[in-house]
Simulated assay, not measured.
Amino acid sequence: MTSGLRILLQQKKAVAGLVIIAALCLMAIFAPIIAPGAPAARVGRSHQPPTIEHVFGTTKMGRDVYTQFVWGSRTSISIGFVTGIAITVLGTAIGLTAGYIGGRTDALLDLATNAVLVIPNIPLLILLASFAGTVGPLSIMTIIALTSWPWGARMTRSQTLALRNRDFVTAAQMIGEPRWRIIFVELLPNLLPLIGINLVGSIIYAIVAQTTLEYLGFGDPLQVSWGTMLYNAQNSSAIILGAWWDIGAPAAGIALIGLGLALVNFTFDEIANPQLRSGPALSRWLSLNSARNRSLGTAQ
């Protein structure tokens, strides 16, 4: 775990990703200080371009886009992280249980995983949201978490099946260690890079899924988020009217948080699979080829 953290901090792209994520999270936490105004307050003319007074312009209703962007980050980022954690915990628990216990338990959990996996997620989310009508943040988190865990469960199960017959697990079983200790002490630490990949991917997916539902009008219109900002901008024909800032601000926020998470995810991939570290591998390959060419030249 320590070596993985050291690799994470040594990678420039991981550090850049963490800086982006930290900056957006701090913006969301300190929203009352950074943007003290009410996001629903009318403070200017309709679709006013960016100015010194309104740095991100205004919406059709005369609301400050910057204030809405800052306050909307609270909802979007919190839903993304909480839902991503819920997806990861659920998928890891099911995959680890199925992979280690095996037998009938594995068969039943694998059947449930495949049943949810074959259903297209976004259409299912839209269907569930349409039945629920207008859904709040808690409902959105619940719907996404209950329909998005199978991918993580499948990956965790496959890796657990590969680990459960390793020598250290067999030795723990032979000395009589309880099953819970084998799972949490022997297996779980070896799954941390995979869990990290699953967590980051789940957060990205949760933010995109939440934005999709709200953009289609299934979110709470009274709750400010990046998704509802896009929905309101669409209803006000912001692009047709040339009010690019109305859509550009929330779109940039979603792109930035996705970029930061993706940069961190690349490093988790490298920790889980060292062969993906193309830089050192390429350097070693070049040095080996150079040495071989020198030896061939000397022989000739």
Rank of each mutant, 00 (worst) to 15 (best):
L161G: 05
G84L: 13
A162P: 00
A86S: 13
A153Y: 08
I126P: 00
A129Y: 05
A86H: 03
R164W: 07
G84V: 12
Q159F: 06
I140P: 05
D110K: 00
T83S: 06
T88F: 11
I175T: 01
I144F: 09
T88D: 06
P123I: 05
S158C: 06
F131P: 08
F168L: 02
Q159K: 15
T113F: 01
L109D: 09
I183M: 15
I183S: 12
T97R: 04
N114G: 01
I101C: 01
I144M: 04
G136N: 15
A112W: 14
T170G: 10
D167C: 06
V185K: 11
I126S: 04
S158K: 03
V89W: 02
F168W: 03
A107E: 13
I175V: 14
Q159N: 09
I101S: 10
G102Y: 01
P178N: 11
W180T: 01
T88M: 09
L90V: 15
V118H: 01
A145R: 06
L125D: 02
A112Y: 00
A98M: 10
I144G: 08
V135F: 07
R104E: 09
S130Y: 03
Q173E: 12
S130L: 14
V169P: 01
L117R: 12
I175M: 02
G84W: 09
I119A: 05
V89G: 04
P120V: 07
A172N: 06
I122D: 02
S139T: 10
A107S: 13
G152K: 06
T147R: 01
D106S: 05
I175E: 00
R104Q: 15
A162V: 02
R164M: 10
G152L: 12
F184S: 10
D110A: 02
N121C: 01
A129E: 05
Y100M: 08
T134R: 14
G103I: 06
W149F: 04
M174L: 15
A107V: 12
P137G: 12
A115L: 15
S130N: 03
L125C: 06
T170E: 14
M155E: 09
A93D: 00
I183E: 01
T83Q: 07
L127A: 13
I175D: 02
R166D: 12
G136F: 13
